[in-house]
């Protein structure tokens, strides 16, 4: 197998998760790269929403560096503002939310507001919800990209920014007044997770070749469910890596970053 970096594995896995003939609402960085790769391979009719207001842009000027980048509006079929695309989403036209975050719990609740301390004087303050909270609420399925670390896969998220299955009760999302069906996949460079339909808890679906479910459990603070049909993660081929490196992120803004 060819050599690949952790972010290349995340982008490739993100691409695999996206189906053709759908709309994906993307956050900055790896979600854009994953979606571009999917468009170039198995999902030519996958269309992107950028939250500053575009639908189905053609990314012929290169990867947008921001979801408000002028490049994210190139040859779009629809260019409005935040209200325009979030209203489409709330109405039911966004199949996937593709977000990131600082912390996640077993029910897929994601934190990207604070870490430690109190709300008014936190130890660390992150930028805030941005689009993530609204995407996780109202896109149909939520895909989250996370770094696989114990402090990030945590028992309790310090501030729930993006709703998952809450406390796991069957009617949590209904009582919250949100419309999407909720967490769908969590992507890391060493494991792909889904959620158990019955308990709504995070379930290990795939592990990177050479690792075991036990290795992954050691990087997670809560108890994982393990899929009875546990698989190996598919690795990117030479052709996939060429697309990622030359077409999707040629300047290496996201793919060449070092893992902290």
């Amino acid at each position: 197998m060819p050599e690949y970096g952790p972010f290349e594995m995340i982008a490739y896995t993100g691409s695999r998760v996206l189906e053709d003939d759908t709309i994906v609402f993307v956050g900055t960085g790896l979600p854009i790269i994953a979606s571009m790769h999917a468009q170039l391979t198995h999902a030519p009719n996958l269309n992107l929403i950028f939250e500053a207001g575009s639908l189905a842009a053609i990314l012929e000027q290169g990867m947008p560096l921001s979801v408000g980048d002028t490049r994210a509006f190139r040859k779009a079929v629809f260019a409005k503002g935040l209200c325009g695309v979030f209203e489409l989403t709330q109405r039911g036209y966004s199949d996937y939310a593709f977000i990131g975050g600082a912390q996640i719990d077993m029910y897929g609740n994601v934190g990207s507001t604070i870490e430690g301390g109190t709300y008014s004087a936190p130890n660390v303050r992150f930028p805030g919800s941005g689009g993530a909270g609204a995407m996780a609420a109202n896109c149909e399925k939520t895909i989250a990209i996370m770094a696989l670390e114990k402090r990030r896969f945590t028992q309790k998220v310090d501030f729930i920014t993006s709703i998952g299955f809450g406390d796991g009760s069957p009617d949590y999302r209904k009582k919250a007044g949100v419309m999407g069906s909720g967490p769908y996949r969590v992507i890391t460079n060493q494991a792909l997770f889904g959620f158990d339909e019955k308990t709504r808890r995070m379930m290990l679906l795939e592990v990177i070749p050479g690792k075991t479910a036990k290795d992954i459990q050691e990087l997670v603070s809560f108890e994982l469910l393990i899929s009875p049909d546990l698989k190996e993660m598919k690795e990117p081929s030479e052709a996939d890596l060429k697309l990622l490196r030359e077409e999707c992120d040629p300047d290496g803004y996201f793919l060449k970053r070092k893992v902290k």
Binding site: A137, I163, G166, Y172, K175, A176
Partner: peptide, 11 residues
């Protein structure tokens, strides 16, 4: 009215 914020700590 919006369909978000509910069920998150923003609520």
């Amino acid at each position: 009215p919006t369909r978000d914020h509910g069920g998150s700590d923003m609520e």
